[in-house]
Design a protein around this nucleic acid. Structure first.
Length: 549
RNA sequence: GGGCCCGUGGCUCAGCAUGGAUAGAGCGACGGCCUUCUAAGCCGUAGAUCGCGGGUUCAAAUCCCGCCGGGUCCGCCA
């Protein structure tokens, strides 16, 4: 709705309707700073210019209530009709509100952690960003698939195979058992360097398709993935597909990409196959002298495959992959293929330094979830409700707290993990939003108990807090659009927080159930519209919108 | 050594793309609010040379240059 208001403002401004000069503002619903820009060339003060523009323009939009010139700003205010349309459209479209009619097949690749152990709190940042982006793209109307690219050909997996052979698998959650084998094997190699050669041979055998070795690798990778999937599920994340790196060796895509590069004449065959990237002053080896491929070769093949199947493909990657990703993109461009759009996120580190699966120095996502759940339990024990419901709420609150804690931070910000903060429910904004939603549900539930309520929003009944709340509700589609354009899901978290906050301001000052007739219907409509936006917004963040808590 | 990212109240962050109206939240601190729709809530107070130094501009947290501090990358590893 806000999007149309904005369009109307641009139209109304005519030749001055440059979107770049529009600002959301506390002084109005939308402000233009165009007068400031014109001041110099027109040799007049911004105030004079703004006055003149406001004088000149004709408003031909039901959504613009008034236009004012203040200190050089041109301030636009939404009309009652805009507010009414907003509430009515939300109530009418319900779960479809926020749909942008965006089209196209989109692939979002996220998490893609090496299957050599459990996900740690750095991986989960990746997962949460990826999953949230996928939900928001999907909401906008795109056909979204999510993929986990399984690095099954890595040295780590070969080492883990060695570990499982030498040390066996402990009886614990599968991904944790795998990590133990991996860490143990690394220690073995340190004391027995001759094992290196064995690892080399495993890798060669796997790429070559040696049946015995292939089945060993498969078992290790699948075991790890069982545990990883469980972890992801506990924070409401589910991938549509798991794509194994080795598939591209076996299905011919690796050969195709090598051939394509060869035909472009960019390969120098010097025993190994080498591509020179002048921009990077670097030589990239894409095929070893012994005929085996490298990680980047398979990744190129994967992206050739993405090019054939999808219109847009987005990767969520740790910032340590920046240089690598730009080299991959450059190679794809040389081949006339589209490079991926990438969301980079900075590291999650521990107070004592960075994490490492190999050294066993990490906090697993499972541990985080478990401890946050225990903390949430402490609050819920005091409530009177069935045990089953308490369990469900605890899980939803814990998963929500974790997801929100990660998603609210801009991806480019490095994070230092702090247990005391992660477990502090006073500062858990997710449960604050869930709680606001539960409050809205509670009011509506009681209204229904009093008999089927009528909802009837009237613009002229709006108080300042109601007007502000409805304006914010009108921006859901606008924020969905922004996330899609900017690939920054944290702005959506910020938005949802503002919805909850505006609702709480309204809640404090405006009794709903005790209000009479017209006012009651008006406020019930606001509550219901807010409920819808909070519910859908929470779902976009992968947080369960609880009706009671 | 070079590239990229971060540096905003005591703490965690938003704002920076597209410069503009008194720099916004939350936590923590202090003082209040449960006979009123869920107190996982609400209200109020204190607290900021926006890392430092220059520059551009009528106007800089935002753009440019230099520096400082932290992170990260620079394999015929993945």
């Amino acid at each position: 709705m806000f999007l149309r208001f904005k369009e109307d403002v641009i139209k109304t401004l005519g030749e001055y309707g440059d979107e770049r000069f529009l600002r959301e503002s506390e002084h109005s619903d939308l402000a233009s700073t165009v007068a400031f820009k014109l001041a110099k060339e027109m040799k007049k003060s911004p105030k004079e210019i703004a006055d003149e523009i406001v004088e000149k323009i004709e408003v031909d939009s039901d959504y613009i209530g008034s236009v004012e010139s203040t200190n050089g700003y041109i301030n636009f205010f939404a009309s009652y009709e805009f507010l009414e349309d907003t509430v009515n459209v939300i109530l009418d479209e319900d779960e479809n509100y926020g749909h942008l009619n965006a089209k196209g097949d989109v692939l979002i690749e996220h998490t893609s952690a090496n299957p050599d152990g459990p996900l740690h709190i750095g991986h989960i940042r990746n997962s949460i960003i990826g999953d949230t982006i996928a939900r928001i793209f999907s909401k906008a109307g795109m056909n979204v698939k999510t993929q986990y690219y399984v690095n099954d050909m890595g040295r780590q997996i070969a080492i883990t195979v060695l570990g499982v052979e030498k040390l066996g698998l402990k009886d614990k959650k599968p991904d944790h058992a795998i990590a133990e084998a991996y860490i143990g094997a690394n220690k073995l190699i340190e004391t027995q360097p001759e094992l290196e050669e064995y690892v080399e041979n495993l890798m060669l055998g796997y790429e070559g398709g040696d049946e015995d070795i292939v089945s060993k690798f498969k078992k290790v990778v699948e075991t790890a993935l069982i545990g990883i999937r469980q972890t992801l599920e506990s924070v409401n994340i589910k991938h549509d597909e798991f794509i194994w790196e080795s598939e591209f060796v076996r299905n011919g895509y690796v050969d195709r990409i090598l051939k394509a590069m060869d035909e472009r004449g960019v390969i120098r065959k010097d025993g190994a196959w080498i591509v020179e990237l002048e921009d990077f002053e670097k030589e990239i080896v894409v095929r070893r002298e012994n005929g085996t491929t490298l990680y980047i070769t398979r990744d190129l093949a994967y992206h050739l495959w993405k090019n054939e199947k999808y219109e847009r493909f987005v990767n969520v990657l740790g910032a340590d992959h920046k240089l690598y990703a730009s080299q991959l993109s450059k190679l794809l461009e040389i081949l006339n293929l589209k490079p991926p759009e990438v969301i980079f996120f900075e590291f999650v580190s521990l107070p004592e330094g960075s994490m490492s699966t190999r050294r066993g120095k990490f906090i697993s996502a499972d541990e985080l979830i478990e401890r946050v759940r225990k903390e949430a339990e402490k609050i819920i024990v005091e409530r009177e409700m069935p045990e089953e419901e308490k369990r469900k709420i605890t899980q939803a609150v814990a998963a929500g707290a974790i997801r929100f804690d990660f998603i609210k931070i801009a991806p480019e910000k490095p994070m230092t993990f702090d247990w005391s903060k992660a477990l502090d429910f006073e500062r858990q904004t997710a449960s604050y939003i869930q709680y606001s939603h539960a409050r809205a549900c509670s009011i509506l539930r009681k209204a229904v108990e009093d008999g089927m309520p009528d909802l009837d929003f009237k613009g002229e009944l709006c108080t300042a807090e109601e007007r502000k709340l409805v304006m914010i509700l009108s921006k859901l589609p606008y924020f969905i659009q922004r996330v899609i354009k900017e690939l920054r899901p944290n702005v959506f978290a910020e938005y949802l927080l503002s919805v909850a906050s505006a609702f709480n301001d309204f809640y404090r000052l405006h009794p709903v159930l005790r209000a009479e007739s017209e006012l009651r219907m008006h406020r019930l409509a606001i509550v219901d519209a807010t409920r819808i936006v909070l519910r859908d917004g929470l779902e976009l963040l992968g947080i369960d919108p609880l009706e009671r808590m």
